[in-house]
Nucleic acid binder design. Structure first.
Lengths: 243, 243
DNA sequence: ACAAAAGTGTTTTGCTTACACCCATGG
DNA sequence: CCATGGGTGTAAGCAAAACACTTTTGT
C-alpha cells in the first residue's frame, strides 16, 4: 500500500471512531429549471399528482444515493423530467431547516438549470403534470421551494451580468431583440435598444449570420450566434464579460 | 388538528413511502475562518494533533446532528474552537465528491466566518494546535479543504466590494490605512490612497472619531467607526455600498 | 533637521446613459 | 402607402483613475 494512501486512511480511521455516533440524514436535490419563452423567463414546476394536494406545486427533486455526488443527482433529476443532457446547471444553496420536510429530516441542496425552450425540448417533458410558470407568477410551493426560486432568480440575475450564461436560455440562433428581451426579463427592467446593442457589439463574442428571422416583423431581423471559442479566447486574455 | 397542518402531513406521508429506500449520509460543516492581522488576511487552521500526520492541517469542522440546521452547526463549530459568538458567517458551497472523505461517505457544507483578530480574541482560541496562515501561504490540507478556501477567498473578494462585510474583520475602531490594507489584501491589489479615502468618505457610513491611533506613526492617524445604523438607513433608501 | 507615515484635490479618461429618426417589408 | 418592428450614432453626465505635495511629530 502506498504511503499516501496509508496516510489518508489514518485520517479516516481517526475520524471513524467518531463516525459511529454521528447522525445520518437524507440528502435531496431540488432543481429550479429556468426557460425563456415568449419574452418571459419561466420556471418548470410539477404538480403533485395524487390526492389531496392536487393544487400543490413543487420543484422537481430526488434523493442522493451513496453512489452519486450532488451534481450527478441534479443531472439525473433533470434528465428524468426533461430527457435533456448537457444542460447548464449550478449549485445554489443548501436548505436545512429542521422541519422543512415534515416527513423526515431532509437537507436539500438546490440547483438551478438553464434550458432552451425554443428548441423542440418542449416535446421531451416526460411528466404530464409539469408546467411552465412565469417567474413572477409562481404559485405557493411545498416546503421552502419558493425561497429557493427567489434565491435562484437573484443568482441568475447577478451572474447573467458577468458571465455569458444567458445564451443557455436561447436557441443557437437568436435575434438581438430576443437577447435583449431575455436580459430584460432576467433583470426585470427595460433596457435601451441602442445601448444594449452597442454594448453587445463591443463585447465582440457573437457571430452575425446572413440569415434573418422573418417571423417577428416584415423587415425581418438578423440572427446571431454565440461564439464560445471567441469568448474563451478573449477571457483567457483577460477580457471580462459585462452587460 | 388544523387543516394546514394536516395538508403538510399528507405531503410528508406520501413522500414517506419512498423515504425508506433512500440512502442516508453523514453531513458535516467545515468552516473557513478569516482574520485580518498585521496587514494580512489569514485563515485559521488546525493541526491534526495525533500521529502520524502531525504535518497535516485541516479546516475545523463538525457533523450535523438531527437537532440542528446547518447554520447552527457552523456556529457551534466556530464557538467550540474560538469561544466566539455572534460572528459573521455565510454558507459557501456543498462538497460531495464520493471519495472526498476516505473514511465514510460524507457530504460537507463549507461556511466562512469573518472575525476580528485585533480584539483580544486571540486569547480565546481553545485549541492549541490552531494556527493562523496567510491566505497565500496555506499548506496542503486534507480532503478538498484547499478547494474550499479558494472558493471562500473568491466569495469574500466579490462580496466585500458590494457589502460592508470588511468591517467584521476589523476592530470597532480602525484607521483609514487599516481599512485600506484590509481591502488591499482581500482584493490582492494595491489601491490608491486618495481615491480610496475619497470613495469611503463618499459612502458616508463611517464616524470619524476624535481619537488617534499613535502606534503606527508619529503623527498618528484618526480612528473611524462603522456606523451600522447609518448604513442600514441609507440602504433602505436605495443606496448601494460599492468600493 | 529629518525620517516616516498621514492627510488632502484636481484633472483626465472612459464608461454609462439619454435620446430620435430612417429603413425595409408585407399587407 | 402605411403600419410594424429593425436598425443605427452622438452628446452629456458621471464615476473611476491618475497623480504630488504638505503636515505632524518623535527622535
Amino acid at each position: 500500500m502506498k504511503l499516501g494512501t496509508a496516510s489518508q486512511n489514518e485520517d479516516a480511521n481517526t475520524k471513524l471512531q467518531y463516525y459511529q455516533k454521528e447522525d445520518q440524514v437524507l440528502l435531496s436535490v431540488d432543481c429550479i429549471i429556468f426557460g425563456f419563452d415568449e419574452k418571459e423567463l419561466k420556471v418548470l414546476l410539477v404538480k403533485r399528482n395524487f390526492e389531496p394536494e392536487m393544487g400543490k406545486w413543487s420543484l422537481i427533486g430526488g434523493f442522493l444515493k451513496k453512489s452519486e455526488n450532488l451534481d450527478e443527482v441534479a443531472i439525473r433529476v433533470l434528465n428524468a423530467l426533461t430527457g435533456l443532457k448537457d444542460i447548464y446547471m449550478e449549485q445554489l444553496y443548501s436548505y436545512s431547516r429542521i422541519d422543512r420536510d415534515p416527513g423526515q429530516r431532509t437537507i436539500s441542496v438546490a440547483y438551478y438549470a438553464l434550458i432552451d425552450l425554443n428548441a423542440k425540448n418542449f416535446d421531451k417533458i416526460k411528466i404530464d403534470s409539469a408546467k411552465w410558470f412565469e417567474i413572477n407568477k409562481v404559485p405557493q410551493l411545498i416546503f421552502d421551494h419558493n425561497e429557493m426560486i427567489e434565491k435562484a432568480i437573484l443568482r441568475l440575475r447577478r451572474k447573467a451580468l458577468v458571465k455569458p450564461i444567458g445564451f443557455e436560455l436561447l436557441p443557437e440562433k437568436f435575434t438581438m431583440r430576443e437577447l435583449q428581451s431575455l436580459y430584460e426579463s432576467i433583470l426585470d427592467k427595460k433596457l435601451d435598444k441602442r445601448n444594449f446593442i452597442n454594448k453587445v457589439n463591443l463585447l465582440d463574442i457573437l457571430d452575425k449570420l446572413d440569415e434573418k428571422d422573418m417571423t417577428s416583423s416584415r423587415k425581418g431581423s438578423f440572427l446571431y450566434r454565440f461564439n464560445e471559442e471567441k469568448y474563451k479566447r478573449k477571457s483567457d486574455e483577460g477580457f471580462d464579460f459585462k452587460i
